[in-house]
Amino acid sequence: MMIGNWLDIGPVTQIEPGTARTLPVLGCEEIAVFHTMRGEFFALRNQCPHKQGPLSQGIVHGDVVTCPLHNWNISLRSGKALGDDEGCVPTIPLKVDAGRLYLLRSAVVTRAEAA
């Protein structure tokens, strides 16, 4: 369902706190949607800037996810690699409204429409 520029991706309860779930986008990069232990939600491209590991499968602590492949720590807030590592993964603007999650449509489908 779509309201204006925001893509409704369903209720917040679909994602357990401290975990992430994936959202494949036909013709574009898969998105990982995170729910932190503190109850915040974030959406990032599901690819570590290091070796493209699936960030959705990492351990979530604070507002950081640790990539399951080589333990890079990625800030869920900025998409930037933390510590000595350098790199950045694109983030997708997300909002929570009345218990549902919305992603900014243009950020979700950029590639396909540019192609």
């Binding site: 369903g10 679909q14 994602i15 975990t19 779930r21 959202l23 494949p24 986008v25 036909l26 396909a112």
Partner: peptide, 14 residues
């Protein structure tokens, strides 16, 4: 939930 995608986005075809 650990195995299923949240949903799948199929952008409107250009």
């Amino acid at each position: 939930k650990l195995h299923q995608h949240l949903a799948e986005v199929r952008p409107f075809p250009t």
